[in-house]
Write a protein that binds this DNA or RNA. Structure first.
Lengths: 178, 178
DNA sequence: CATTATTTTCAGTAATTACTGAAATTACGG
DNA sequence: CCGTAATTTCAGTAATTACTGAAAATAATG
Protein backbone atom coordinates (compact mmCIF):
# COMPACT_ATOMS: atom_id res chain seq x y z
CA UNK A 1 0.00 0.00 0.00
CA UNK A 2 2.96 2.33 0.66
CA UNK A 3 4.31 1.86 -2.84
CA UNK A 4 1.17 3.44 -4.37
CA UNK A 5 0.96 7.12 -5.15
CA UNK A 6 -1.29 9.37 -3.03
CA UNK A 7 -4.24 9.62 -5.40
CA UNK A 8 -4.28 5.93 -6.13
CA UNK A 9 -4.20 5.17 -2.42
CA UNK A 10 -7.05 7.59 -1.71
CA UNK A 11 -9.13 6.04 -4.46
CA UNK A 12 -8.49 2.50 -3.27
CA UNK A 13 -9.15 3.29 0.38
CA UNK A 14 -12.40 5.00 -0.53
CA UNK A 15 -13.63 1.99 -2.48
CA UNK A 16 -12.72 -0.21 0.45
CA UNK A 17 -14.78 1.91 2.81
CA UNK A 18 -17.73 2.20 0.43
CA UNK A 19 -17.73 -1.57 0.12
CA UNK A 20 -20.05 -1.96 3.08
CA UNK A 21 -22.69 0.28 1.49
CA UNK A 22 -22.38 -1.66 -1.72
CA UNK A 23 -22.74 -5.08 -0.15
CA UNK A 24 -19.15 -6.14 -0.74
CA UNK A 25 -16.35 -6.26 1.79
CA UNK A 26 -13.36 -3.98 2.13
CA UNK A 27 -10.81 -6.16 0.38
CA UNK A 28 -13.07 -6.85 -2.58
CA UNK A 29 -13.62 -3.13 -3.01
CA UNK A 30 -9.92 -2.41 -2.82
CA UNK A 31 -8.97 -5.12 -5.28
CA UNK A 32 -11.51 -3.79 -7.72
CA UNK A 33 -10.30 -0.22 -7.34
CA UNK A 34 -6.70 -1.27 -7.86
CA UNK A 35 -7.54 -3.18 -11.02
CA UNK A 36 -9.71 -0.35 -12.27
CA UNK A 37 -6.81 2.09 -12.15
CA UNK A 38 -4.13 -0.32 -13.27
CA UNK A 39 -2.57 0.31 -16.64
CA UNK A 40 -1.94 -3.37 -17.27
CA UNK A 41 -3.52 -6.59 -16.03
CA UNK A 42 -2.24 -7.63 -12.60
CA UNK A 43 -1.56 -11.04 -11.14
CA UNK A 44 -2.58 -12.08 -7.65
CA UNK A 45 0.83 -11.41 -6.18
CA UNK A 46 0.87 -7.88 -7.59
CA UNK A 47 -2.34 -7.30 -5.66
CA UNK A 48 -0.92 -8.84 -2.49
CA UNK A 49 2.06 -6.53 -2.79
CA UNK A 50 -0.04 -3.44 -3.46
CA UNK A 51 -2.68 -3.95 -0.76
CA UNK A 52 -0.81 -5.90 1.89
CA UNK A 53 -3.47 -8.55 2.44
CA UNK A 54 -3.04 -12.30 2.41
CA UNK A 55 -2.76 -14.29 -0.75
CA UNK A 56 -5.87 -16.31 0.12
CA UNK A 57 -7.90 -13.17 0.69
CA UNK A 58 -6.92 -11.94 -2.77
CA UNK A 59 -7.87 -15.26 -4.27
CA UNK A 60 -11.34 -15.13 -2.70
CA UNK A 61 -11.84 -11.51 -3.60
CA UNK A 62 -10.96 -12.14 -7.24
CA UNK A 63 -13.35 -15.05 -7.28
CA UNK A 64 -16.14 -12.82 -6.04
CA UNK A 65 -15.33 -10.09 -8.56
CA UNK A 66 -15.40 -12.66 -11.32
CA UNK A 67 -18.80 -13.86 -10.10
CA UNK A 68 -19.93 -10.24 -10.45
CA UNK A 69 -18.37 -10.19 -13.96
CA UNK A 70 -16.52 -7.03 -12.91
CA UNK A 71 -13.05 -8.37 -13.62
CA UNK A 72 -11.91 -10.68 -16.36
CA UNK A 73 -9.20 -13.26 -16.24
CA UNK A 74 -6.61 -13.44 -19.00
CA UNK A 75 -3.27 -15.01 -19.72
CA UNK A 76 -0.11 -13.29 -20.88
CA UNK A 77 2.03 -15.18 -23.31
CA UNK A 78 4.86 -17.12 -21.76
CA UNK A 79 3.52 -16.71 -18.23
CA UNK A 80 1.46 -19.32 -16.45
CA UNK A 81 0.00 -17.00 -13.88
CA UNK A 82 -3.57 -15.66 -14.05
CA UNK A 83 -3.85 -11.96 -14.77
CA UNK A 84 -6.87 -9.80 -14.09
CA UNK A 85 -8.24 -6.54 -15.42
CA UNK A 86 -11.43 -4.52 -15.59
CA UNK A 87 -13.20 -3.66 -18.86
CA UNK A 88 -12.08 -0.41 -20.50
CA UNK A 89 -15.51 1.02 -21.17
CA UNK A 90 -17.07 2.50 -18.02
CA UNK A 91 -20.54 2.20 -19.55
CA UNK A 92 -20.09 -1.49 -19.96
CA UNK A 93 -18.99 -1.66 -16.33
CA UNK A 94 -22.09 0.21 -15.22
CA UNK A 95 -24.31 -2.09 -17.22
CA UNK A 96 -22.76 -5.18 -15.67
CA UNK A 97 -23.14 -3.71 -12.21
CA UNK A 98 -26.81 -2.96 -12.77
CA UNK A 99 -27.50 -6.39 -14.22
CA UNK A 100 -25.78 -8.19 -11.37
CA UNK A 101 -27.39 -6.11 -8.67
CA UNK A 102 -30.76 -6.75 -10.22
CA UNK A 103 -30.06 -10.45 -10.25
CA UNK A 104 -29.13 -10.48 -6.58
CA UNK A 105 -31.43 -7.87 -5.12
CA UNK A 106 -34.57 -7.78 -7.22
CA UNK A 107 -35.08 -11.16 -8.88
CA UNK A 108 -35.40 -13.17 -5.65
CA UNK A 109 -37.91 -10.69 -4.29
CA UNK A 110 -39.97 -10.71 -7.46
CA UNK A 111 -40.06 -14.48 -7.33
CA UNK A 112 -41.34 -14.49 -3.74
CA UNK A 113 -43.96 -11.89 -4.55
CA UNK A 114 -45.16 -13.91 -7.52
CA UNK A 115 -45.57 -16.98 -5.32
CA UNK A 116 -47.53 -15.02 -2.76
CA UNK A 117 -49.82 -13.65 -5.44
CA UNK A 118 -50.62 -17.09 -6.77
CA UNK A 119 -52.03 -18.12 -3.41
CA UNK A 120 -54.13 -14.99 -3.16
CA UNK A 121 -57.90 -14.89 -3.63
CA UNK A 122 -58.82 -13.00 -6.81
CA UNK A 123 -62.33 -12.09 -5.73
CA UNK A 124 -61.81 -10.78 -2.25
CA UNK A 125 -58.37 -9.22 -2.10
CA UNK A 126 -57.20 -8.44 1.44
CA UNK A 127 -55.23 -5.32 2.23
CA UNK A 128 -51.90 -7.14 2.41
CA UNK A 129 -52.64 -9.03 -0.81
CA UNK A 130 -53.26 -5.71 -2.50
CA UNK A 131 -50.07 -4.28 -1.04
CA UNK A 132 -48.06 -7.26 -2.26
CA UNK A 133 -49.53 -6.89 -5.73
CA UNK A 134 -48.66 -3.19 -5.82
CA UNK A 135 -45.04 -3.90 -4.98
CA UNK A 136 -44.93 -6.75 -7.45
CA UNK A 137 -46.29 -4.60 -10.28
CA UNK A 138 -43.85 -1.80 -9.53
CA UNK A 139 -40.87 -4.14 -9.54
CA UNK A 140 -41.97 -5.92 -12.68
CA UNK A 141 -42.54 -2.67 -14.53
CA UNK A 142 -39.20 -1.18 -13.42
CA UNK A 143 -37.34 -4.28 -14.43
CA UNK A 144 -38.96 -4.42 -17.82
CA UNK A 145 -37.96 -0.82 -18.30
CA UNK A 146 -34.36 -1.26 -17.20
CA UNK A 147 -34.17 -4.32 -19.45
CA UNK A 148 -35.22 -2.20 -22.39
CA UNK A 149 -32.67 0.45 -21.50
CA UNK A 150 -29.83 -2.00 -21.03
CA UNK A 151 -30.62 -3.68 -24.31
CA UNK A 152 -29.80 -0.43 -26.09
CA UNK A 153 -26.27 -0.34 -27.44
CA UNK A 154 -23.87 1.82 -25.42
CA UNK A 155 -23.96 4.80 -27.76
CA UNK A 156 -27.77 4.97 -27.87
CA UNK A 157 -27.80 4.56 -24.08
CA UNK A 158 -25.43 7.49 -23.75
CA UNK A 159 -27.79 9.53 -25.88
CA UNK A 160 -30.76 8.67 -23.68
CA UNK A 161 -28.84 9.58 -20.55
CA UNK A 162 -27.70 12.83 -22.11
CA UNK A 163 -31.29 13.66 -22.97
CA UNK A 164 -31.78 14.55 -19.33
CA UNK A 165 -34.58 17.01 -18.96
CA UNK A 166 -35.49 16.28 -22.53
CA UNK A 167 -37.13 13.09 -21.31
CA UNK A 168 -40.03 15.24 -20.19
CA UNK A 169 -40.52 16.76 -23.59
CA UNK A 170 -40.30 13.40 -25.29
CA UNK A 171 -42.97 12.02 -22.99
CA UNK A 172 -45.23 14.95 -23.74
CA UNK A 173 -44.68 14.36 -27.40
CA UNK A 174 -45.38 10.64 -27.00
CA UNK A 175 -48.66 11.46 -25.27
CA UNK A 176 -49.81 13.81 -27.98
CA UNK A 177 -49.19 11.12 -30.54
CA UNK A 178 -51.52 8.52 -28.95
CA UNK B 1 -44.27 -13.99 14.70
CA UNK B 2 -46.65 -16.91 15.24
CA UNK B 3 -49.70 -14.66 15.33
CA UNK B 4 -49.12 -13.57 11.71
CA UNK B 5 -50.74 -15.33 8.78
CA UNK B 6 -48.59 -17.44 6.47
CA UNK B 7 -48.23 -15.00 3.60
CA UNK B 8 -47.41 -12.10 5.86
CA UNK B 9 -44.80 -14.18 7.63
CA UNK B 10 -43.24 -15.28 4.34
CA UNK B 11 -43.09 -11.68 3.15
CA UNK B 12 -41.54 -10.44 6.38
CA UNK B 13 -38.98 -13.23 6.56
CA UNK B 14 -37.96 -12.59 2.98
CA UNK B 15 -37.38 -8.91 3.62
CA UNK B 16 -35.34 -9.81 6.67
CA UNK B 17 -33.13 -12.09 4.61
CA UNK B 18 -32.78 -9.67 1.73
CA UNK B 19 -31.69 -7.00 4.20
CA UNK B 20 -28.06 -8.01 3.88
CA UNK B 21 -28.10 -7.48 0.11
CA UNK B 22 -29.72 -4.12 0.63
CA UNK B 23 -27.29 -2.88 3.25
CA UNK B 24 -29.75 -3.02 6.13
CA UNK B 25 -29.94 -5.63 8.85
CA UNK B 26 -32.52 -8.32 9.35
CA UNK B 27 -34.64 -6.59 11.96
CA UNK B 28 -34.80 -3.34 10.01
CA UNK B 29 -35.97 -5.26 6.97
CA UNK B 30 -38.60 -7.12 8.96
CA UNK B 31 -39.92 -4.00 10.65
CA UNK B 32 -40.25 -2.32 7.30
CA UNK B 33 -42.04 -5.28 5.77
CA UNK B 34 -44.46 -5.47 8.69
CA UNK B 35 -45.31 -1.78 8.43
CA UNK B 36 -45.61 -2.00 4.68
CA UNK B 37 -48.33 -4.64 4.93
CA UNK B 38 -50.06 -3.24 8.00
CA UNK B 39 -53.53 -1.85 7.51
CA UNK B 40 -53.11 0.76 10.24
CA UNK B 41 -50.14 2.49 11.83
CA UNK B 42 -48.39 0.36 14.46
CA UNK B 43 -46.71 1.33 17.71
CA UNK B 44 -43.39 -0.06 18.85
CA UNK B 45 -44.96 -2.67 21.11
CA UNK B 46 -47.12 -3.96 18.26
CA UNK B 47 -43.90 -4.58 16.37
CA UNK B 48 -42.25 -6.25 19.35
CA UNK B 49 -45.27 -8.54 19.65
CA UNK B 50 -45.34 -9.35 15.93
CA UNK B 51 -41.62 -9.99 15.40
CA UNK B 52 -40.48 -11.19 18.81
CA UNK B 53 -37.42 -8.96 19.06
CA UNK B 54 -36.44 -6.68 21.89
CA UNK B 55 -38.02 -3.32 22.44
CA UNK B 56 -34.66 -1.57 22.07
CA UNK B 57 -33.99 -3.29 18.79
CA UNK B 58 -37.33 -2.05 17.47
CA UNK B 59 -36.51 1.44 18.65
CA UNK B 60 -33.20 1.45 16.80
CA UNK B 61 -34.70 -0.08 13.69
CA UNK B 62 -37.45 2.52 13.54
CA UNK B 63 -34.88 5.23 13.95
CA UNK B 64 -32.94 3.91 10.99
CA UNK B 65 -36.07 3.60 8.86
CA UNK B 66 -36.95 7.18 9.69
CA UNK B 67 -33.46 8.26 8.69
CA UNK B 68 -34.15 6.57 5.35
CA UNK B 69 -37.51 8.40 5.22
CA UNK B 70 -39.15 5.04 4.59
CA UNK B 71 -41.52 5.21 7.57
CA UNK B 72 -43.28 8.18 9.01
CA UNK B 73 -44.15 8.84 12.61
CA UNK B 74 -47.64 9.96 13.54
CA UNK B 75 -49.82 10.35 16.60
CA UNK B 76 -53.29 8.96 17.13
CA UNK B 77 -55.67 11.15 19.06
CA UNK B 78 -55.88 10.38 22.76
CA UNK B 79 -52.80 8.15 22.69
CA UNK B 80 -49.36 9.30 23.69
CA UNK B 81 -47.50 6.52 21.94
CA UNK B 82 -45.68 6.99 18.63
CA UNK B 83 -47.24 5.19 15.69
CA UNK B 84 -45.50 4.36 12.43
CA UNK B 85 -46.57 3.64 8.90
CA UNK B 86 -45.21 3.54 5.36
CA UNK B 87 -46.45 5.83 2.56
CA UNK B 88 -49.39 4.47 0.56
CA UNK B 89 -47.98 5.17 -2.90
CA UNK B 90 -45.39 2.59 -3.93
CA UNK B 91 -43.94 5.00 -6.49
CA UNK B 92 -43.26 7.52 -3.79
CA UNK B 93 -41.57 4.77 -1.80
CA UNK B 94 -39.39 3.85 -4.76
CA UNK B 95 -38.41 7.45 -5.27
CA UNK B 96 -37.40 7.85 -1.64
CA UNK B 97 -35.38 4.65 -1.80
CA UNK B 98 -33.51 5.81 -4.88
CA UNK B 99 -32.82 9.23 -3.44
CA UNK B 100 -31.51 7.87 -0.18
CA UNK B 101 -29.38 5.22 -1.80
CA UNK B 102 -27.90 7.86 -4.06
CA UNK B 103 -27.13 10.02 -1.08
CA UNK B 104 -25.35 7.20 0.74
CA UNK B 105 -23.73 5.30 -2.09
CA UNK B 106 -23.01 7.74 -4.88
CA UNK B 107 -22.60 11.23 -3.43
CA UNK B 108 -19.60 10.42 -1.22
CA UNK B 109 -17.84 8.74 -4.14
CA UNK B 110 -18.52 11.63 -6.46
CA UNK B 111 -17.10 14.00 -3.91
CA UNK B 112 -13.88 11.98 -3.57
CA UNK B 113 -13.52 11.75 -7.34
CA UNK B 114 -13.95 15.51 -7.69
CA UNK B 115 -11.20 16.10 -5.15
CA UNK B 116 -8.88 13.75 -6.95
CA UNK B 117 -9.55 15.48 -10.25
CA UNK B 118 -8.72 18.89 -8.84
CA UNK B 119 -5.21 17.73 -7.99
CA UNK B 120 -4.69 16.27 -11.43
CA UNK B 121 -2.50 17.82 -14.10
CA UNK B 122 -4.60 19.09 -17.02
CA UNK B 123 -1.84 18.93 -19.62
CA UNK B 124 -0.35 15.56 -19.03
CA UNK B 125 -3.10 13.27 -17.82
CA UNK B 126 -1.84 9.95 -16.43
CA UNK B 127 -3.72 6.74 -17.06
CA UNK B 128 -5.21 6.65 -13.57
CA UNK B 129 -6.18 10.31 -13.78
CA UNK B 130 -8.01 9.56 -16.98
CA UNK B 131 -9.68 6.53 -15.42
CA UNK B 132 -10.83 8.60 -12.46
CA UNK B 133 -12.23 11.24 -14.77
CA UNK B 134 -14.13 8.63 -16.77
CA UNK B 135 -15.78 7.28 -13.66
CA UNK B 136 -16.52 10.77 -12.43
CA UNK B 137 -18.17 11.79 -15.69
CA UNK B 138 -20.27 8.64 -15.78
CA UNK B 139 -21.51 9.13 -12.24
CA UNK B 140 -22.22 12.80 -12.72
CA UNK B 141 -24.14 12.16 -15.92
CA UNK B 142 -26.17 9.32 -14.42
CA UNK B 143 -27.04 11.36 -11.39
CA UNK B 144 -28.12 14.32 -13.43
CA UNK B 145 -30.33 12.00 -15.41
CA UNK B 146 -31.89 10.32 -12.40
CA UNK B 147 -32.45 13.75 -10.88
CA UNK B 148 -34.38 14.76 -13.95
CA UNK B 149 -36.42 11.59 -13.83
CA UNK B 150 -37.18 11.86 -10.14
CA UNK B 151 -38.24 15.45 -10.54
CA UNK B 152 -41.07 14.33 -12.81
CA UNK B 153 -44.38 13.97 -10.98
CA UNK B 154 -45.40 10.38 -10.24
CA UNK B 155 -47.88 10.10 -13.08
CA UNK B 156 -45.45 11.36 -15.72
CA UNK B 157 -42.82 9.05 -14.27
CA UNK B 158 -45.19 6.12 -14.61
CA UNK B 159 -45.69 7.09 -18.24
CA UNK B 160 -41.95 7.13 -18.87
CA UNK B 161 -41.53 3.73 -17.30
CA UNK B 162 -44.43 2.37 -19.29
CA UNK B 163 -42.81 3.66 -22.46
CA UNK B 164 -40.40 0.79 -22.19
CA UNK B 165 -39.13 -0.15 -25.59
CA UNK B 166 -40.64 3.06 -26.88
CA UNK B 167 -37.66 4.88 -25.41
CA UNK B 168 -35.69 3.69 -28.37
CA UNK B 169 -38.10 5.12 -30.88
CA UNK B 170 -38.30 8.40 -29.05
CA UNK B 171 -34.53 8.70 -29.05
CA UNK B 172 -34.44 8.01 -32.75
CA UNK B 173 -37.01 10.68 -33.23
CA UNK B 174 -35.07 13.09 -31.02
CA UNK B 175 -31.97 12.47 -33.15
CA UNK B 176 -33.74 13.14 -36.39
CA UNK B 177 -34.95 16.43 -35.04
CA UNK B 178 -31.44 17.82 -34.25
C1' DC C 1 5.35 -38.78 -14.25
C1' DA C 2 8.00 -36.06 -11.09
C1' DT C 3 8.93 -31.31 -10.15
C1' DT C 4 7.69 -26.88 -9.45
C1' DA C 5 4.76 -22.84 -9.87
C1' DT C 6 0.29 -21.29 -8.99
C1' DT C 7 -4.28 -21.24 -7.21
C1' DT C 8 -7.90 -22.85 -4.06
C1' DT C 9 -9.85 -24.49 0.07
C1' DC C 10 -10.79 -24.44 4.76
C1' DA C 11 -10.40 -24.60 9.82
C1' DG C 12 -9.30 -21.42 13.19
C1' DT C 13 -9.23 -16.72 14.73
C1' DA C 14 -9.86 -11.79 14.46
C1' DA C 15 -12.87 -8.08 13.61
C1' DT C 16 -17.23 -6.31 12.97
C1' DT C 17 -22.02 -5.92 13.43
C1' DA C 18 -26.47 -7.01 15.60
C1' DC C 19 -29.15 -7.57 19.63
C1' DT C 20 -30.53 -7.45 24.45
C1' DG C 21 -31.68 -5.86 29.16
C1' DA C 22 -31.14 -2.40 32.30
C1' DA C 23 -30.67 2.27 33.25
C1' DA C 24 -31.35 6.99 31.76
C1' DT C 25 -34.04 10.30 29.42
C1' DT C 26 -38.02 12.44 27.61
C1' DA C 27 -42.57 14.17 27.72
C1' DC C 28 -47.34 13.85 28.91
C1' DG C 29 -51.39 14.28 32.27
C1' DG C 30 -52.89 15.38 36.48
C1' DC D 1 -43.70 19.71 39.57
C1' DC D 2 -44.79 14.72 40.52
C1' DG D 3 -45.73 10.38 38.78
C1' DT D 4 -46.02 7.46 35.11
C1' DA D 5 -45.99 5.93 30.33
C1' DA D 6 -43.08 5.77 26.55
C1' DT D 7 -38.78 6.03 24.23
C1' DT D 8 -33.76 6.10 23.83
C1' DT D 9 -29.17 5.02 25.02
C1' DC D 10 -25.53 2.08 25.88
C1' DA D 11 -22.44 -1.44 27.85
C1' DG D 12 -22.09 -6.16 27.47
C1' DT D 13 -22.71 -10.26 24.77
C1' DA D 14 -24.16 -13.02 20.89
C1' DA D 15 -23.95 -13.82 16.10
C1' DT D 16 -22.02 -13.05 11.86
C1' DT D 17 -18.60 -11.95 8.61
C1' DA D 18 -13.80 -11.22 7.13
C1' DC D 19 -9.15 -12.71 7.06
C1' DT D 20 -5.10 -15.62 7.61
C1' DG D 21 -1.81 -19.45 7.26
C1' DA D 22 -1.23 -23.99 6.23
C1' DA D 23 -2.42 -27.74 3.61
C1' DA D 24 -4.54 -29.57 -0.59
C1' DA D 25 -5.51 -29.30 -5.31
C1' DT D 26 -4.53 -27.98 -10.00
C1' DA D 27 -1.84 -27.41 -13.93
C1' DA D 28 2.27 -26.50 -16.69
C1' DT D 29 7.13 -27.98 -17.85
C1' DG D 30 10.86 -30.80 -18.83
Amino acid sequence: MESLDDDTRTFILHFGEMGSHWGINRTVGQVYALLYLAEKPLCADDIVAALGVSRSNVSMSLKELQAWRLVKLQHLSGDRRDFFSTPDDVWEIARTLIEERRKRELDPTLSVLRDLMLRSDEQDESHSQQRIREMHDLLEQSMRWSDDLLRLNPSTLKQVIRLGDGVRKLVDFGNRKT
